[in-house]
Simulated assay, not measured.
Amino acid sequence: MAEEPLNLEEFAALLPFTPETLPLAVGWLLAALRPGMPRPVAYLTGEQGTGKSTSGQMLAGVIEGARAPLRQAPETLRDLGPTTAAGWVLALDNLSGMPGWLSDALCRIVTGDAQVTRALYTDDDVNVLTYQRPVLLTGIDLGALRNDLAERMLPLELQPIPRHKRRTAGALWAAYERAHPRILGALLDLAAAVWAELPHAAAELTERPRLADFAELLHALDRVTGWHSLDAVTGAQDALNDAVLDGHPVAAALRAWALSPTFPAGGWSGTMTELHDLLGDRGGKFTKGWPQTPAILSARITHIAPALRSRGIHAGRVSGSNKNGKLWAVTYTPAP
């Protein structure tokens, strides 16, 4: 076990991560150093006034350079390619909304993507942009997240800065620029030790989450440092699942019903029209964003099904039908 693989005091003083989050931030930086590796999408979370934008700029700047800028989210898919290719880390600031096309594109960017567009002022020439980039986000509405993106998210929580530790922007950035070479050098030393442990970590792991490469890297990091970052990322993902479910109107309605005394002991079965009426009468129809038709409700349930299953709620099609349509079933098994 290495005693001080990274100058944590200097790093932590500049970026106020919680103790549980600090190893995950280091793990994300290490993953950003490995080309061709699928990585989680890091997002900074915390109370108002925790410095999410500044911390995001500093975290990306460890790799990109001390003054790496955060960018605004592009308005179209065509704009996303040049925005992504402009640097190594794609860092988007104040991402309050999340359109479906951007959610899908971010999933592809962290695992590898190519964008083909017609060259301007030509009939058949094309431009091809290929990229696989680390992604960092701030200011996300978790209720707007699609489940496939939520499963790739790595929440990095910032803790409130005490009044006696607050610094002016000029003093903070001056300290960061002085520390940047030492932080980057220590990170590269740590990377060398972690890379050497990767084969042993891969052989030792028996279970892997969706981003298996990142899990192996965290396990190698734990072997080098004595941390528990792999356990921490599992706990962070559980908390994120809860936040996504609470912010999703359909998931929240199903979850409230499954945990209520009125939920049938053996589960429920019926048509999607009946389920739409049932959940609507329980208050769903008064919720912002509630699906107006059974078909839309069906699509929303299918989309959020993996997150629901992680909390013991199974909702899906079953064999059989009645005069009103095909049958669906909802069951609940409390997690141990």
Rank of each mutant, 00 (worst) to 15 (best):
G267K: 07
R146F: 00
L218A: 04
T54I: 14
R163C: 06
L230V: 06
D93Y: 11
I109S: 03
A335V: 10
I63N: 05
F11L: 14
L77R: 08
M153K: 00
D123F: 11
P162E: 13
G185R: 11
M153I: 03
P306S: 03
G270M: 08
P209N: 11
D246E: 15
A220S: 06
A201N: 10
W328I: 00
M153W: 00
R166Q: 15
E64G: 09
A256T: 14
N241W: 05
L137G: 07
P74W: 09
A175L: 08
V128R: 08
R182P: 07
M272P: 07
E4Y: 02
W195L: 06
R223H: 13
W195I: 10
A329P: 01
F17V: 15
L92K: 11
G56T: 05
N241E: 09
D123T: 09
R152S: 06
L308S: 03
L190G: 08
L33P: 12
P134Q: 12
Y176P: 03
P162V: 14
L279S: 05
L90Y: 09
Y121R: 05
L33Q: 14
L187P: 01
F263L: 07
V26I: 07
S229C: 02
W257D: 04
P199S: 05
T45K: 04
D231E: 13
R67I: 03
L142C: 15
R167V: 02
A196Y: 15
L24F: 03
Y332H: 12
H228M: 02
W290Q: 10
R34Y: 10
L149G: 01
G56Q: 03
T262H: 06
P209H: 08
A25G: 10
D231G: 04
P40L: 04
P334K: 07
D238N: 11
A202F: 08
P19A: 12
T206E: 06
Q237T: 06
W88N: 07
T21P: 14
V41F: 01
D123I: 05
S96G: 11
L77F: 15
E75Q: 15
H314L: 14
V250W: 04
G185K: 06
I313F: 01
A203F: 10
E3I: 13
P291Y: 04
C107K: 13
A236Y: 02
A169D: 14
